[in-house]
Design a protein around this nucleic acid. Structure first.
Lengths: 186, 186
DNA sequence: GTCTATAGATCGATAGAC
DNA sequence: GTCTATCGATCTATAGAC
């Protein structure tokens, strides 16, 4: 018999979407109870530390997802080129072709960055490091690889900002395609 | 005799810095009164619309500054190449080599974007349009110019996010230098 | 124009019944 | 585990004295 009971794990994706939409300060407990269907009592049962613990859980969940679905293939690539192209495809899918905000990036430029410095730092550092690793497997030297990896990760973040700013997700899609072509012709 | 009286115009840069640091939701009136030295009464005298009017005034101020100091030279360049290099220098100075957040970008990925859609859209659209114009003066065709302009503006935003995320402003400086080299060798 | 005092709403968080 | 009721703090905004 299937348990219908809400588990802590089931709540995290809902929390992620709320924080993506409203930011840390903007995501009130009223909104959170509304969107999760859980009362404050239940929320504090799962996350005794309140909003801060909720964000920490969301960040850990995001980190684990990227580790499995994005970083792993870059860190130990049998075929570096298709690993990078795969990363760009996963990224496009994850950010829903530019219509979904990057929560980690949003937290990074917010004042609350200082409450989750390691989670934010590690997410981007791991992205850059594994991408640079794949680029080195393609024959680039250490500094070339690192520079291009930083350019691509920053470019993705910037495209998300710009796409949302001028309300045109196409900008994101174009950016992903540009990097794909650049990798293919490498 | 110099008037020491605080005018509305004098308050705006202080407000800008508060919103940059704390975001819209995070910038409480308590913080604002503290940082401006003005009581709530005075603030609401200058900005009857409250925080929303304060942000609108800040956005108008930023827009005017960029129009004068950045966009004007790109829109009507006698020397397109040095106009673009000058834009990159001004940008580096304005964002204090990556240690200062872009308020317009921060608002864009926040939920409050929908309260200032035109100001945010116009800021980035004008940046892209004038930069693309300067690139066309350098001999690029319309679509090449637009594509590179979008890439550079997005790259700047992304570098700001990344620099703050991994707490390394050097990333921003490197990004500016990269674009400068790319323009010079165009 | 500037301040203090305060209204009225909402905030995060807790207590305790079930 | 889940809920409702509620706490004290803080929020934006207003009123009114000076």
């Amino acid at each position: 018999m299937t348990r219908v009971v809400t588990e802590r794990l089931d709540v995290i994706p809902l929390l992620a979407e709320v924080f993506r939409e409203h930011g840390f300060e903007g995501a009130s407990l009223a909104i959170i109870t509304d969107r999760t269907g859980l009362g404050k009592g239940s929320l504090y049962h799962f996350f005794p530390g309140g909003k801060e613990e909720m964000v920490a859980a969301v960040l850990a969940d995001i980190s684990a997802w990227f580790e499995t679905n994005v970083f792993a293939a870059l860190a130990d690539p049998s075929d570096p080129k298709s690993a990078i192209v795969g990363m760009l495809d996963s990224t496009d899918a994850y950010f829903q072709s530019g219509s979904r905000v990057c929560l980690v990036g949003a937290l990074a430029i917010d004042h609350v960055r200082d409450r989750f410095p390691d989670a934010i730092k590690d997410y981007f550092a791991r992205w850059i490091d594994t991408l640079a690793n794949a680029l080195r497997c393609l024959g680039q030297n250490r500094s070339e690889a690192r520079s291009l990896a930083e350019e691509i990760v920053a470019g993705i973040q910037g495209a998300l900002v710009l796409a949302r700013a001028i309300d045109d997700p196409e900008i994101f899609t174009t950016t992903i395609r540009r990097y794909k072509n650049r990798i293919i012709t490498l």
